[in-house]
Design a protein around this nucleic acid. Structure first.
Length: 264
DNA sequence: ATGCCAGGCACAGCCTGA
């Protein structure tokens, strides 16, 4: 295993966020960056600027909504699949998978699901079931695999500043949490939680009510490792400084570092 | 119970996000 830094970042509009994205890439230098919510069609993807910054790009965009990308420093990600098996009729760009730097990377943007109950929540659960089914095969692989992205699930009440006003939100529903736990129970490691079992760690702070200033956040961006990769997990964290910048996304980048040798 | 802030688009008020 090569020493690697892998990050996931819901950028909430790649065009309006491009200067901040480039500043983050330059400062933190992730080897692999999974992006979500590009909110741009492929024709508007800033490929030239990212390649000039040293990153090969693979992307699945869409006008206005969703959109995912995988960036790799000094390398071109090799596409393995776009879209989940069982979701062939899905018109929303939410899943991209690539081989890069010796790791199989799944970049995902799980549906939000609000309001619930309703068709959007049903879609979220359906999408989640397809992810669980696809992940089963990836988990069994002898090859290192990471599933990184915005899962739109707050796994437990320890992953939110205060669940009170969010009880009816799709992100906290038992159905959403059950599916996240079912995914983990296949044998995936939730990187941040594995290294920081008792800490309050957030990855998202909405634009309302001064939530960033009050550190009223949610942990919804996750990097899951299969058993072939988990032994190499060395460190993990959140680049919270990005959330504090002018014109920031409401998410901050989350990252892991992998060691060259097994640690456990 | 709703709006709060923000991006994107038929560029003016909507829709969506989480």
């Amino acid at each position: 295993m090569k020493a690697l830094k892998i990050a996931t970042f819901n950028i909430n509009g790649i065009r309006s966020r491009l200067p901040g994205l480039l500043a983050w890439l330059e400062r933190e230098r992730p080897d692999i960056a999974c992006l979500q919510e590009l909110k741009a069609p492929d024709t508007a993807f800033p490929r030239d600027a990212l390649e000039a910054a040293g990153y090969g790009c693979l992307y699945q965009g869409q006008t206005s909504w969703n959109g995912v990308a995988i960036l790799a420093r000094d390398s071109q990600p090799v596409e393995v699949r776009r879209g989940l098996p069982g979701m062939e009729e899905d018109t929303q760009s939410r899943y991209l998978e690539a081989a890069v730097h010796g790791v199989l990377v799944g970049c995902l943007y799980l549906p939000n699901g609000n309001p619930q109950p309703g068709p959007k929540f049903d879609y979220k659960l359906r999408w989640f079931e397809c992810l669980i089914e696809h992940a089963r095969g990836l988990r069994e692989s002898d090859h290192p695999v990471v599933l990184a992205g915005d899962y739109n699930v707050v796994p437990t009440d320890e992953d939110i500043y205060d669940p009170k006003s969010w009880r009816k939100d799709a992100l906290l529903q038992p159905e959403s949490r059950d599916r996240y736990q079912r995914l983990l129970s296949q044998g995936w490691t939730d990187s941040l939680r594995a290294l920081y079992p008792d800490e309050r760690v957030y990855t998202f702070w909405d634009y309302f009510r001064n939530h960033w200033q009050r550190n009223a956040g949610l942990r919804i961006d996750h990097l899951l490792l299969n058993p072939a990769l988990a032994p190499y997990l060395k460190d993990a964290g959140v680049d919270a400084w990005v959330r504090n910048e002018e014109h920031a996304s409401d998410h901050a980048p989350v990252w892991i570092e992998l060691a060259t040798r097994k640690r456990r």
